[in-house]
Design a protein around this nucleic acid. Structure first.
Length: 487
RNA sequence: GGCGAGAUAGCAAAAUGGUUAUGCAGCGGAUUGCAAAUCCGUUCAUCCCAGUUCGAUUCUGGGUCUCGCCUCCA
């Protein structure tokens, strides 16, 4: 039985889909005016993990992650750069895809762009106006009348009175209530034609909140199963989405609301405004993408996750242990290590397939004890941290008993999380610095050391090993010869 | 000020009304020419104060501290 922590209920609940074995999931994606940072990486990786788990669990899931390609910041940035809105957003959409691909994040089934759904947004605003929930203010903006919607605050647990008490918003004169939010922004003369759409309320562009309501409804229906996003979107964004969608359709919008925790830096939320963010691409210059994915998945998705080099180093060391177990597998099992052809999923991290059939279902033996524990962990609100702990215990088993079955099962299980699908040696030897030794030099040094060892010249052999270690190369002698990896 | 989340060993991070989390680090042993890797064993913990209970880190109440939201934010 799959349980999900539902923010709306503030409790874990059994997941019951609207239509048996089908899932509609909408996740708030990026506003594309800059590169994605690690906080964005967490949303993508976390919901990718959830997406994969639904598939493996036999659900027919439709995953929508939107792209906000029209908003104040985009307009401002485009003007600064002297480029068109479209050119700017396309550039950062491409960059986002590169980053997501590197992290082994599968493409959602739909990635709707706000600018392609303006008619749907206008329809919804019209409905809200019919229900007396929207009004056009003196300045031309169409606003949502928050006080007219009874359930306002049910997701965030805030009451209008509480919000009033802590009022910090600049009161726009044109709003009936300071908490009303904009549905349609009236066009300004200074703005480019590119950001203006015709509407019954005059030229303008959509407010941010209506985008998600309209796209979610269009692609998943007036009512769907899961809506996710970062915890900071709970209020006001998701609260407003509920007000819009339920106001327009007069019935429940979403059954399960899921929110992932932040990435912190020195215990403070990583964010644009604080300026304490690291872009995915910058981090990937220093750390392997799979290490970053592992780092994110090793924590529970709702917990805060502190970012620092020390934490990434720790994650790297842990992932190295997992790959080392795979490396020590018998040669005969290496045939099935880089995954097979015909996978329905693109393979993360190049090389092997992420899994067979429904994302690994075909190769994991779910009756095997580790798999059972892994499944129980994942079914308990996607506890990937616990699932990874099972992986470590499995690694111990593989080290003690590296049979073909064990190795294949171990790798398949890790593949469920999009981990451990690369050739282990390739992983262990990856991450060469710019000025690092090339493989030929390393191999030559190893050969020289073997010769020294055979001549019982251990001082020389140790010197070679020390020199390589200083260059970040760790040698490991075994019965079958000497191998190396990068520290 | 209002609302919400959280405080677990040296670090990171799960879970649990009584029984080993897990990874790194430490300690002892096996293995190794010596290492590394691996294996075996092992030290170290549940913020404070009450209450419920045979028994609480886990439940309840209070306190302290931290973080988040209340403004765009993943």
């Amino acid at each position: 039985m799959l349980k999900i922590y539902n923010t709306l209920a503030r409790d874990k609940q059994e997941f019951i889909p609207i239509i048996d074995k089908k899932v509609g999931m909408y996740v708030c994606g990026m506003t594309v005016y800059d590169y994605c940072h690690l906080g964005h990486a967490r949303v993508m990786v976390v919901f990718d993990m959830i997406y994969r788990w639904f598939k493996i669990s036999g659900y027919d899931i439709t995953y929508v992650r939107n792209i906000t390609d029209i908003d104040d910041k985009i307009i401002k940035r485009a003007a600064e750069n002297g480029e068109s809105i479209h050119a700017l957003t396309q550039r950062f959409i491409d960059a986002m895809h590169q980053d997501a691909d590197a992290l082994g994040v599968l493409r959602p089934d739909h990635e709707p762009r706000a600018t392609q759904f303006v008619p749907e947004m206008l329809d919804m605003i019209a409905k809200l106006e019919q229900h007396g929930l929207a009004y056009q203010a003196a300045d031309g903006d169409v606003n949502y009348a928050v006080r007219k919607f009874d359930g306002y605050g049910k997701l965030s647990g805030k009451s209008l009175e509480d919000l009033r008490a802590g009022e910090r918003v600049n009161v726009a004169d044109s709003k009936h209530d300071p908490l009303d939010f904009v549905l349609w922004k009236s066009a300004k003369d200074s703005e480019a034609e590119e950001v203006k759409w015709a509407s019954p309320w005059g030229k303008g562009r959509p407010g941010w909140h209506i985008e998600c309501s309209a796209m979610g409804t269009k692609l998943l229906g007036e009512r769907f199963d899961i809506h996710g996003g970062g915890a900071d979107l709970q209020f006001p964004h998701h609260e407003n989405e509920i007000a819009q969608s339920e106001g327009a359709h007069q019935h429940q919008y979403v059954n399960y609301w899921m929110h992932n925790g932040f990435i912190n830096v020195d215990k403070e939320k990583m964010s644009k405004s604080l300026g304490n963010f690291f872009t995915i691409r910058d981090v990937l210059k220093k750390y392997d993408a799979e290490v970053v994915r592992f780092f994110i998945l090793r924590a529970h998705y709702r917990s805060p996750l502190n970012y620092s080099d020390a934490h990434l180093d720790d994650a790297k060391g842990a992932l190295t242990r997992l790959y080392t177990a795979l490396k020590n597998a018998p040669p005969s099992s290496s045939v099935l290590l880089p995954g097979g052809e015909g996978s329905s999923l693109p393979s993360p991290f190049g090389g092997g397939a992420g899994g067979e059939g429904a994302a690994g279902e075909g190769i994991v033996d779910w009756n095997e004890p580790h798999a059972q524990r892994f499944q129980a962990a994942m079914d308990d609100d996607f506890n990937s941290a616990e699932a990874i702990a099972v992986l470590f215990e499995f690694a111990n088993e593989v080290n003690r008993n590296p049979t073909l079955d064990n190795c294949a099962q171990f790798k398949a299980l890790a593949g469920v999380l999009g981990l451990l699908q690369r050739d282990p040696v390739a992983f262990l030897q990856s991450g060469a610095p710019e000025d690092g030794l090339d493989d030929a030099v390393i191999t030559a040094q190893i050969t020289a050391r073997i010769a020294a060892k055979q001549a019982k010249n251990y001082a020389e052999a140790d010197n070679i090993r020390k020199a390589l270690l200083a260059a970040g190369i760790v040698l490991e002698d075994s019965a079958t010869g000497t191998t190396w990896r990068r520290a």
